[in-house]
Each structure stands twice: as C-alpha cells, then as structure tokens.
Nucleic acid binder design. Sequence first.
DNA 1: CCGTATCCGCGCCGATACTG
DNA 2: CAGTATCGGCGCGGATACGG
Lengths: 141, 141
Amino acid sequence: MRQQDPSPASAGGRLAEAMQRGDVFADLCPSREVLNHVTSRWGVLLLVALLGGTHRFSELRRKVRGISEKMLAQTLQSLEGDGFVDRIAYPVVPPHVEYRLTPLGQEVGQRVEALADWIELNLGEILSARQARQATQASVE
Amino acid sequence: MRQQDPSPASAGGRLAEAMQRGDVFADLCPSREVLNHVTSRWGVLLLVALLGGTHRFSELRRKVRGISEKMLAQTLQSLEGDGFVDRIAYPVVPPHVEYRLTPLGQEVGQRVEALADWIELNLGEILSARQARQATQASVE
DNA sequence: CCGTATCCGCGCCGATACTG
DNA sequence: CAGTATCGGCGCGGATACGG
C-alpha cells in the first residue's frame, strides 16, 4: 500500500475501513442499497424538495419537473422504505396524500443538499478547469 | 404552494431556488452531469478511496473490489474531466500511472464521504425502522 | 387525485480480447 | 502495467393505459 497514515486529508471514516475488508462493494450490502436510493437520479431531487416541507404528490410532480408518475411513486416508496419519508393519506375523495421527511430523512437530506449545493456553487471553477485542460490538450497534439 | 417560509429545517440553498425555475432537471444541465459523476456507483467509492491518498491504477482496482477495468478507467476519466482527480503518468516501462485528488476533489470527496459515512453509521436505525413498518403492515392485513 | 400495470427502447456496465 | 475495442444482457426508466 502506498501510504497508510490515517490522517493526511480525510481522517478516514468507517467507509474507508470497510473498503479494506471489501464488504462495502457487495451490491447486496444494505448500506450500498440505501446509498443508491439516496443518490439516485430522482432521490437527490426529491430529498432536496422535501427539505422545503410537506408536499402533496402532485406538488412534487410539478416541483421536480420532468419526473414521471412511475418514478415519483417508485422513488418515494424506496425513500419511505428506508425511513426517510412519511406518507400520510387522508381518507377523502378525491384522495389527498402528503409526503414529508422524517427526522432521519432531514439528516440525510441535509447531507445530500450540502453535496449538491457545493457542486452548484463551484460549478464555475469546475467548468473553467475543464477549459484549461482542453487548452493543454490542444497545444500538445 | 404549501409553505414557502424559507427556514423551517433546511435554510434552502441554491439548489432549492433553482428547482423553482426548473432548470436543474434538464438532463443536460452541467451541474446534474457533475452530480451524476460524483454520485455514480463507482464514483462514490473512488472518491472515498482517493481520500486516502495517491493510488496507482492497479491499487484502485484492488481497493475498490468488484470494479472492472473498463469502469475504473471510465470513471477516473469523468472525475478527471471534472477536475477532481489528477492523472500523473511516468514515462517508463512498464507504465506507471498515479491518481490523486485535486484540492477541488478533496472538497467534494469529503462531502461524499460525509454522506456515505452517515448512512453507514445510522444503518442500524434505518433497518430497524424498516422492521417496525413491516410489523405494522403485517398487523394491518 | 393518486397511484398501479404493462410494454419496450436505450444505455449502463460486465466479460472478453487485444495493444503500447 | 495500463489501458482501448467490441459485443451483449439486462435493468432503468419513459410512455401509455387503466383502476380505486
């Protein structure tokens, strides 16, 4: 191994430890499954949307523009299954259903938003780094 | 809209604002593309691995158990393209190539690790929440 | 209004073989 | 050692239609 001092930049969390054992990568690993739900295409956006408070099905559909009913229902179910969202159905006609984050969901949602927001904030720097590299490439060939 | 007070739980970042305009969801949106790279199946694991320091291609292949050469090369290229990793090739035979995080990559990597580690830490609570809900289901039907 | 069911195309990704 | 090239399965997810 190249260097095993545990504190150069990252302070190595449990994930880093688990990587050594190789048991993070089995796709059936529960934490990988949860991570996939959370970082999935629509999971990220739904968590951010729900950080804004309780929403109805149709409200989420409008707010998360471009999502199909199928994926909205499916993603909400997976997040509900992980205990991140609560589904509250009022027995009226026409049906009225509300979704909101559980305390657990708010915690994970904040971390997801922290990541997404960082990217949004630093997008300029990221893209200009891309430019610089393309210029280098051009001068080489 | 149900509630628009901007400070119940999340303090709403730029992402939340952008969602209203609907320009976060275009799949060609650059920030969505970067987010997809970072949260992709192997992107997460590579960033965490590289938080541990510089690695060679074959070292990453061993550390991130289960990844194919194709996906390793491909994911590393996308991360390099976003300015998150540096690729250093030494012109010797046999070839010797090292990968390490840029300062930008360390920042994003820390946020990814924060998310992944939180899940790992709270996995017990997540799974027991699932249990509780299944028990509820069983008693209902 | 809030979903479920079905069909199906497209792209991700693993396997394999090959190059510098 | 460090990749690229090519093929092929299969699952994600969009479109559509239907039910409570």
